[in-house]
Structure formats: structure tokens, C-alpha cells
């Protein structure tokens, strides 16, 4: 039987970690979305050196375990655990988001770009006003899944003392010696975050399918 006294006695600690997990995931989401969009545009821009930079970034980052990246940002710079963790997550997630967005951009018919360019818009203007708004629609479902992964991956903040839910769980289990029960509660807290997100993504997917 689960020892619920851990939950009640350490509620404020759990909630502190829960809060940090939400904040870290949210900041990393925004940043990786911006960075990922930039890299996606670099990968398809009509300028070879940019393509190479984008490709190198994606292939390099995607093929390193996220744990290694988080350790690296923590050890290489003098940030605190939370900042280093957020940067590591951002760098990692951006590579996947870039790929999702690139696929979205590629699925917009070529004629859209041609129509925009032939009316005098620059490549950048056409991207921003014509291509990206259409690509985003296609990209939302895979992005949602990336966000859920991001929330789960944020548990890696624990290894660099990032103060997140997993980290607080480590602390609680160390002081109560109820390792099993503590991590069950930690898992439940993650579910509180990820299950609604998962349903949200499913809902968006259905709505977007209808609007097309």
C-alpha cells in the first residue's frame, strides 16, 4: 500500500518541483520553437552554406543523447542547473522541431512560393506571410508530440540539480528512504501534465483535419 503521508508531508516540495518542471518545459518549448524554425528555414533556404549549417546542426544534435547535451551545457558554462538544463533541452528539442517544421514547409505546394515571389515579395517575406502560416497547421500535431517529449525529458534537469520534479523526488526519497513510493508520486505528477497535453494534441489534430 502506498504511503500517502509522503505526499502530504512533502506536498510543498513536490509542488515546487512541479512548478519548475512546468516553467522549464515552457521556456524550453518557446526557445526551441524559435530556434527550430530558424534552423528549418536555414535547411531549405536557397543558399547552400546555410543549408549545410542547418544540416550539420540537426544531424549532430539529433544523434547525441539528450543527457550528454544537458551535462555538457552544465559543465561547459557557468550557469545554474536549471538554466543549463533549459538550454540543453532547447538545443536538443530544436533539432527535432526543425525537422518537423521542415517537413511542414516542404508539404506546402511550390506554387505558393512562386505566387508570392512573382508578386515582388522577398524570400523572407514570402516565408513569413505565405509559407510558414500554412506549414504550422501541418506541423502542430508533431510539435505537440515534441512538447510532450520535452516535458518528460525535462526530468534530466535532476542530474544537474535543476530543481525540477524529478530532482525534488530524489531529495524526498533520500530523506524518507521510501524510494518506491516517492517515484510513484513523481510519475503521477508527470501524468497530470502529460495526459492533458496528449489529449490536447489529439483534439487539435482532429480540428485541423476538419478545417482542411
Amino acid at each position: 500500500m502506498l504511503d500517502f503521508s509522503i505526499l502530504t508531508d512533502y506536498m510543498d516540495v513536490f509542488l515546487e518541483g512541479f512548478k519548475i518542471t512546468i516553467i522549464a518545459s515552457f521556456i524550453a518549448l518557446i526557445c526551441s520553437f524559435i530556434l527550430g524554425t530558424l534552423i528549418a528555414v536555414m535547411r531549405i533556404a536557397p543558399f547552400k552554406p546555410l543549408n549545410w549549417i542547418g544540416t550539420v546542426y540537426v544531424e549532430f544534435i539529433r544523434n547525441i543523447p539528450v543527457l550528454v547535451i544537458v551535462f555538457f551545457t552544465y559543465l561547459a558554462f557557468d550557469f545554474g542547473g536549471m538554466t543549463a538544463g533549459i538550454i540543453g533541452l532547447t538545443v536538443y528539442t530544436a533539432a527535432f522541431i526543425a525537422e518537423a517544421i521542415r517537413a511542414g514547409i516542404m508539404s506546402v505546394p511550390r506554387g505558393q512560393m512562386e505566387a508570392a515571389r512573382s508578386s515582388g515579395l522577398t524570400y523572407g517575406q514570402a516565408m513569413k506571410s505565405v509559407i510558414l502560416p500554412q506549414a504550422i497547421k501541418i506541423v502542430i500535431p508533431p510539435l505537440g508530440n515534441q512538447f510532450i517529449n520535452l516535458v518528460k525529458n525535462s526530468s534530466l534537469l535532476a542530474v544537474v540539480a535543476g530543481g525540477d520534479l524529478m530532482y525534488q523526488g530524489d531529495l524526498i526519497s533520500a530523506s524518507t528512504f521510501s524510494t518506491f513510493d516517492t517515484y510513484i508520486f513523481v510519475g503521477l505528477f508527470y501524468l497530470i501534465l502529460t495526459i492533458p497535453l496528449s489529449f490536447g494534441v489529439g483534439f487539435l489534430e482532429k480540428r485541423l483535419a476538419r478545417s482542411n
Binding site: 505558393q112 515582388g120 500554412q134
Partner: peptide, 16 residues
């Protein structure tokens, strides 16, 4: 290009 309008077979209006 500002000075040249173009009309395509498949219209290519911006759907959004």
C-alpha cells in the same frame, strides 16, 4: 517582378 503580374494554371491563392 513588381511590374509583372502572373496568373497560374492552379491559381495558387493563399488558402489561409
Amino acid at each position: 517582378r513588381r511590374n509583372i503580374g502572373m496568373v497560374f494554371q492552379h491559381f495558387y491563392l493563399y488558402p489561409h
